[in-house]
Design a protein around this nucleic acid. Structure first.
Lengths: 192, 192
DNA sequence: AGAGATTGTTGACATTTGTCAATAATTTAT
DNA sequence: ATAAATTATTGACAAATGTCAACAATCTCT
């Protein structure tokens, strides 16, 4: 486990002060998994059993409507946690799919292990709260961009806040993350 | 304090099991405030000093762009917590304003008292985490509605999930909460 | 109760964005 | 390396929504 869990350890010790034994207690609950490109980790209507920590690669949480159109709820890259959050948290069927859009190296923990850590490890609740705070703030910013900005402004914001993502992912996916069509994004790019 | 804090107590005991003395310790940090209609509680560019709990009435967290256009980030009604979350959490200048759109009865706690409770009261961290989880899930649903639905669908969803809000607030505010113009909303309503 | 302010409605038109389709470019898998 | 699949671009057009303006309806405050 040594090497596979170092990023997770760093993530946690960045948030809280914690003894090595307790940190190990947390890390022991996380198992390692490598995925291929486009591998589906969760289908809609399933209850999401895991929350993932991305060591390497990229996860995409997306919705699929009746017409087969896809909408990207979240993109999760290195050193971030990600899951179908409502489904995992409430243990109810997911509206979203999870896939690894790149070959990825992941850690994952089951719902029951995740829950047990709240009682077993002092500090885990704080670490989780801080993570949630950050994720919630990010989602507020996203809502704001969706209600106040047009397609072009949102694209430029994304380039500014997450330039790597834009370079790294097919623009098809960037487009539906921004809530616009592939064609509109293509036109935005050519017009400056 | 008896009566003014009963709703808050109920909110907390709904989430966690807690002894009366500890619950009192929490409640003691919350002060009471009555506001008039349209009273501004926070201006943009100020660091938000408080998080509010709404006993009665309604808070609105909104953005104002250079052209004077308003965008409603959140509406907070009875028995919910609300604040300019990024500003309060990170103690940085707010992009948003907070106003009470109705005459309201509020409880509020300062940032430092809020922080101190994490260390003083076992259970407060859990209560906060659970609240955050719920708020984060709500914001994810909102993002989804913004990227997957058109104006009409979003309006119908709001009617379904929050019928009271739609009746109670001026449709101007409902419109910019939905991210659409007042005129578009007016047309949606007449066309069914 | 009534004046003034705010909010809501409607029409005409502009703008943005989406959709469909054809083709080009790129990537992937063998 | 090459064929097949995927992704990106572009054009023409349609649909959704925004903007501006005029007016009506409704609140609100004294």
């Amino acid at each position: 486990m040594s090497d596979t869990h170092t990023q997770l350890k760093k993530f946690i010790t960045n948030q809280i002060t914690i003894e090595d034994e307790l940190l190990a207690l947390i890390c022991n609950k996380f198992r390692y998994k490598a995925t291929r490109r486009n591998q589906i980790l969760l289908h809609a209507d399933e209850v999401c059993p895991y929350i993932y920590f991305v060591n390497q690669g990229c996860l995409r949480v997306y919705l699929l409507d009746a017409a087969g159109k896809e909408f990207t709820r979240f993109l999760i890259t290195e050193n971030r946690f990600g899951t179908a959050f409502p489904s995992f948290t409430l243990q109810e069927p997911s509206l979203a799919y999870i896939e690894s859009i790149e070959p990825s190296q992941l850690l994952y923990i089951s719902y029951s292990d995740y829950q047990s850590l709240f009682d077993i490890v002092p500090g885990w609740e704080r670490s989780t709260r801080l993570g949630l705070q950050a994720d919630y703030i990010a989602s507020i910013k996203r809502i704001e961009s969706l209600i106040t900005m047009d397609a072009k402004q949102r694209y430029q914001l994304l380039i500014k806040t997450n330039p790597t993502l834009v370079q790294r992912l097919p623009s098809k996916i960037i487009a539906d993350y921004l809530g616009i069509s592939q064609e509109t994004l293509s036109r935005l790019k050519s017009k400056k």
